Amino acid sequence: MKGDAVRENPTILRIRLGAELRELRDRLGLSLDAASKALTAGDHDISVSKLSRLENGKGAIRLHDIRCLLDLYKVGSDAQRDLLLRMAREAKAAAPAAWWTDYESVLPSGLSTYVGLEAGAGRLLTFTLTLIEGLLQTEDYARALIQAWLPTDPPETIERLVQLRMQRQNVLITDPKLELITVMDEAALRRPIGGGTTMRSQLHHVLDVCEKLPNVSVQVIPLSKGAYGPQHGMFTLIEPRDPADKSVAYVDSMGGNLYMQRPDQISRFRTMFGRLQAMALDPHESLNVIRTAAEETRP
């Protein structure tokens, strides 16, 4: 654990704090259930679900809870204890200052964590099947997509979510710049979301971004490849800007948003992404496929 871990990104702070708490629990050989029961026996009510959320960097942080956990885990070093409590205080203080908190009222469950991780990432490895990667979407394309996802939501909510998606794209041009490597199925280029005119503009936008920003790379898996894995879902591997932090794999599934951090899980997603890259066309060939798709898309 680094001794100078002072951050402005509350999501990164919470995840780092959670990882430290999980490591302390594991060292004592305690399960989540055993830790929760031990705390309850000591008149400190921290449920299994609450402890799980803390370890996964989610939920509100209460300093009293952190102190109780440190007592349970026998953290005797004043320096280690002070650092963990400082990390907790930093996370609480930084949360209101994070720009994406302005959108908390309209963010779907779990997405706030993703936006925070994205804001603190050094590299994103993304795989998409039928949609253009969110950081490469135009405003019209994003609006059509969000309207389809949330058909009963009021127009004000839709517009706020569109604004959020556009603001997220600043990570591609800020300093330090985020490196984005995305692999997409050719089906994403052929599905006319928002109609022909919107889709054609969207494809030209992807071409423009790839030509202007050296930190953005797109590879396309052609339809001619037939069946391949993983055609069951999209995922993102989020690699942190600070190497002291851990990578996170995000899967957007029908059962909810999943965040995975175990080394074996990260290794599996890296291997999977490498296979997808090897199957896809190289970036130059991929841009030619996107250019052709744009030409063939009728307004």
Rank of each mutant, 00 (worst) to 15 (best):
D175N: 09
L237C: 04
K212E: 14
V171Q: 03
K177W: 01
E239Q: 14
G196L: 05
I158D: 13
I158Q: 10
E156Q: 10
R200F: 03
E239V: 14
Y228E: 01
F235L: 09
Q219S: 02
D175W: 01
K177F: 01
M199A: 06
G195T: 01
D153Q: 14
T236A: 15
S201C: 07
V162Y: 07
T198Q: 06
A227Q: 08
S201N: 12
L213F: 04
M234Y: 00
G195K: 02
D208V: 01
Q202K: 06
L213N: 10
L172A: 01
T236D: 09
A188F: 12
D175A: 09
L145N: 08
Q169P: 00
T197A: 15
C210D: 05
T198A: 11
T157M: 10
I158M: 13
M199N: 12
V209A: 11
I158P: 06
K212P: 00
E156G: 02
A188N: 06
E186P: 00
Q231E: 08
R160S: 12
R168M: 11
T174R: 15
A227C: 05
I238L: 13
L178M: 06
S224R: 11
D175G: 00
Q231W: 03
R165G: 13
T198N: 03
H205V: 01
N215G: 00
N170L: 08
V206C: 14
M184I: 15
I193L: 14
T174I: 05
L207E: 10
S217T: 15
F235H: 03
T157K: 14
P222W: 09
P230N: 07
Q169Y: 06
S201D: 14
P151H: 09
G194Y: 04
P154D: 15
P240W: 07
M166I: 14
H204E: 10
V162L: 13
E239C: 09
Q231T: 11
E156C: 01
T174S: 13
L164F: 01
V216K: 06
V162K: 11
T174Y: 00
V220R: 06
R160L: 14
T182L: 11
V162A: 14
Q202H: 09
D185G: 02
R165Y: 09
T236L: 02
T198F: 04
R165N: 08
L172R: 05
I173C: 03
A227R: 10
N215E: 12
P214Q: 07
S201I: 01
R200P: 10
K212F: 00
P230L: 03
L164I: 04
I193P: 11
F235D: 09
